[in-house]
Design a protein around this nucleic acid. Structure first.
Lengths: 202, 202
DNA sequence: CTGGTATGTTACTGACCGGTAACATATATG
DNA sequence: CATATATGTTACCGGTCAGTAACATACCAG
């Protein structure tokens, strides 16, 4: 039988190449147990491979951590773009959809806050390769928020954006200590009130 | 010369007993570098003592971590009591003073967020001796806020309290990724606006 | 078939970790 | 002085960590 194009896949459980399995496994372990709590050997084994293959794809554990965060940032960007397509020319609907999404996310008992923010806590070294990924992600997040608030016609878009930013950031970190039933559970309502309050003062 | 009471101290640089030095040193190192990043040997050496003495006072590193957090929670309680004495029968002034205090705290470039919240990120294990300290601290913090909001005469004190809680929690974690000049710098103004907004809807 | 490339396997290094044993020293109190 | 208690010192244990060397195997392209 002639070899077909490798694109064909019998089922959904195609075995990904080792690099993908390593990143996917590392993502789950890093997020659930913390970055410093997970060793490279455990990652390689859980990914169905070994340490040597891991180090053939990543120069160091720190680089794997950076890649882990880079993927999350990319996924977040995709999510934002999806919001924009779902509510075209309706920035306020985008804002509310985002609030609702974070509220749902926070209510998941398996969630442990923003992986990027957690990484910032675990890696205080300013020259860690992950630091710039974290900072750029948060800047992008804030800029996205500011843009939406401005498009909504708020008088002080930066102020509302920062309020929402802190609210969301606080909700995700708070869910780790007070649980999903804590203050974070009413996030959507709080955000709506904030937006309405700013719209009233136009 | 007869031995005087040991209470007399020639100057401010009295050498504290080893246990105090260990806790103080551990507090600084844990906060600055993260709990998992600091070894017991480094703590003992920086405290001017040794590992054996450390383990004569603390059953394990985890217990030292718990004590570190317990002290911070106690300090926070003292601070709250001070606010109450500084502004007796004026809950709104207490709220504003607290907001201002956190804003100042966040603007300190050496700050790295709430030590309790950071510990929750670093220690996800539910049976870690530090977890209950963290949870009780956050519950107390929230209850204190709710009490102040209720005393202020807010229609929905729980809602405002949770909004302020998330705002403050978000400000401290956000300062770690976006720096002291980020959204957290306008915390006081945001909180005042929130309070005013709730007072208007009485 | 052949040769290059990606991967698997095993064993290893050197460093650090939390925690302990055994013994020496100081200090304060009787 | 004598005794008890707190502290210092050194060395060690078993385990884990990040990272590497050397070699074996698979696989895919020519």
């Amino acid at each position: 039988m002639k070899s077909a194009h490798p694109i064909e896949s019998k089922d959904e459980t195609v075995r990904q190449p080792p690099r993908e399995r390593i990143v996917a496994t590392a993502s789950e372990l890093f997020y659930r147990h913390g970055i410093r709590a997970v060793g490279v050997e455990a990652i390689a084994e859980a990914a169905g491979t070994n340490k040597m293959t891991l180090y053939r794809h990543f120069a160091s554990k720190d680089e794997l951590v950076a890649e882990y965060l880079r993927r999350l940032a990319a996924e977040a960007a995709v999510f934002w773009d999806g919001l924009e397509k779902a509510h075209p020319d309706d920035p306020r609907a985008q804002l509310r959809a985002w609030l609702k999404s974070v509220e749902d996310h926070v209510s998941d008992p398996g969630q442990r806050g923003c992986a990027l923010a957690n990484a910032a806590v675990e890696l205080p070294d300013k020259d860690h390769p992950a630091r710039c990924v974290i900072e750029q992600f948060k800047i992008a997040q804030r800029d996205r928020l500011i843009g939406l608030c401005r498009a909504t016609g708020i008088a002080e878009p930066d102020l509302l954006a920062d309020e929402l930013f802190l609210l969301l950031e606080g909700a995700r970190v708070c869910a780790q200590s007070l649980g999903p039933q804590g203050p974070a559970s009413r996030l959507s309502r709080m955000g709506d009130a904030l937006i309405a309050s700013h719209l009233a003062t136009v």
